[in-house]
Amino acid sequence: MATKTHSEEHHHDHEEPHIVGNSVYIIVWVALMILTGITVWVARHNFGVFNIVVALGIASIKASIVALFFMHLKYEDKLTWTFALYPLFLLALLIGLTASDVFYRLSP
């Protein structure tokens, strides 16, 4: 989670921009490349239902890495975290509750 947290009531001491070293970025990039390679490799083999699980799992890891480091989410306050995660929750709701209609409709 965020390394720096700011209490809501003290919104006037704002954070300085956090400068991340290029070495961190290079490591992150290498990791992203390796993960991309793994995704492509996995897709060429049949693991049944695990294919989609692995594909989405890896995509989520990659997305998290991009958000945490490239987008500096790691260094953001709780407020930013809240508004970064809440849309994902709503997305899950949209997919989940719509599916609860569509799939129970198809196979009662």
Binding site: T36, T39, A43, V66
Partner: peptide, 26 residues
């Protein structure tokens, strides 16, 4: 720059999902 960068990363983020979802269906 930082704010524009955030937008650019989002483009990347979404593609990270689109690639396996569309190209890698097994």
């Amino acid at each position: 720059i930082e704010v524009g960068g955030l937008y650019w990363h989002l483009v990347d983020l979404i593609w990270i999902y689109l690639f396996p979802l569309l190209y890698l269906i097994s």
